[in-house]
């Protein structure tokens, strides 16, 4: 008999800054690499998808109106909180069966990647914006703006770092998002939601669902209020499905996968740029 009975954690979803269970009241078993049960995660349905999109939409205007400086500080704050809980995430990855050395590297890279993107928020319009020398007598400039709500389909590999690598550029660009967490390894994602909750990230900016992709990808990517899709999977069937669903309302789709998420090549302003719209303003110049 152990001296103390361990307190097991209930893994829930993250919608609108709260941690509800799935509307379906169903869960599914999450196992480690050897197939042993670690925990049960929520098995979300299309109703949870709808709730998450509503939450992402209602928080969009607020996130958009934050200054770029403020957004940068908020993302930096996520990294700060994460640094303090580093060991929790390493332990969680180890518990799922990943090697200690890799887990440490994965979590540290994720923290550094957040800081990288925190620094981009107030530089995007300088790098991707232009003042355009039109031939007529007008002042003309183009600035990037966020696209809106982005659906993120997270991969199973390097489950924590890949998630952070996909979410950070999306929110750095001023978008809000709904994430389908890794189906195999959703637990670090749910714990990451707790970090977001403890940081200064306003409710609804990041919404996270767990469950079977088959039961959610279709409804999320065909949702009329989703503006863009960031797909981290290489599954051909899912790529085609998301492309097709995108055409219902001209969603922008970006398939982005990585062989090694630890590589610094996977942090880039050009990922943010995929989820920015360019707005061009004209004004006459005259007295």
């Amino acid at each position: 008999m152990p001296d103390r009975i361990e307190v097991l954690k209930t893994y829930k979803t993250f919608i609108g800054g709260k941690f509800p269970r799935s509307e379906s009241d169903r869960t599914y078993a999450v196992t480690d690499l050897k197939g042993n049960l670690i925990a049960n995660a929520c098995r979300c349905t299309r109703k949870d998808v709808r709730d998450a999109v509503v939450s992402a939409r209602s928080s969009f205007d607020g996130w958009l109106s934050r200054s770029a400086y403020n957004r940068g500080q908020i993302i930096y704050r996520i990294a700060e909180i994460l640094e303090g809980r580093k060991n929790q995430f390493i332990a969680e990855l180890e518990h799922a069966g990943f090697k200690t050395k890799n887990s440490v590297k994965e979590v540290e890279t994720a923290i550094d990647r957040l800081i990288y993107y925190a620094g981009w928020t107030d530089k995007l319009s300088q790098v991707f914006g232009t003042v355009n020398p039109v031939a007529s007598s007008h002042f003309n400039f183009s600035v990037p703006e966020p696209m809106g709500i982005v659906a993120i389909i997270a991969p199973d590999e390097t489950p924590f770092l890949s998630l952070v690598s996909l979410v950070a550029p999306i929110i750095a660009g001023g978008n809000t998002c709904v994430i389908l967490a890794s189906e195999k390894n959703p637990l670090p994602a749910v714990s990451f939601a707790e970090v977001l909750h403890a940081s200064d990230v306003p409710a609804g900016i990041v919404n996270l669902l767990t469950g079977y992709r088959d039961e959610m990808v279709d409804s999320l990517t065909s949702h009329m209020d989703v503006n863009a899709i960031l797909n981290g999977l290489t599954d051909k069937k899912i790529m085609k499905l998301t492309d097709e669903n995108a055409s219902i309302n001209i969603k922008r789709v970006y398939h982005y996968s990585a062989e090694n998420w630890l590589d610094n090549i996977h942090e880039s302003p050009y990922i943010i740029q995929q989820f920015l719209e360019i707005k061009t303003t004209w004004h006459p110049v005259s007295v």
Partner: peptide, 22 residues
């Protein structure tokens, strides 16, 4: 994607053009 302020329907090769949403 384009905002014409106190003008309308102006075009120029240096000026990006294109839409949001649908």
């Amino acid at each position: 994607g384009v905002m014409w302020a106190n003008t309308y329907n102006k075009f120029d090769p240096t000026s990006p053009f294109g839409g949001y949403k649908e």
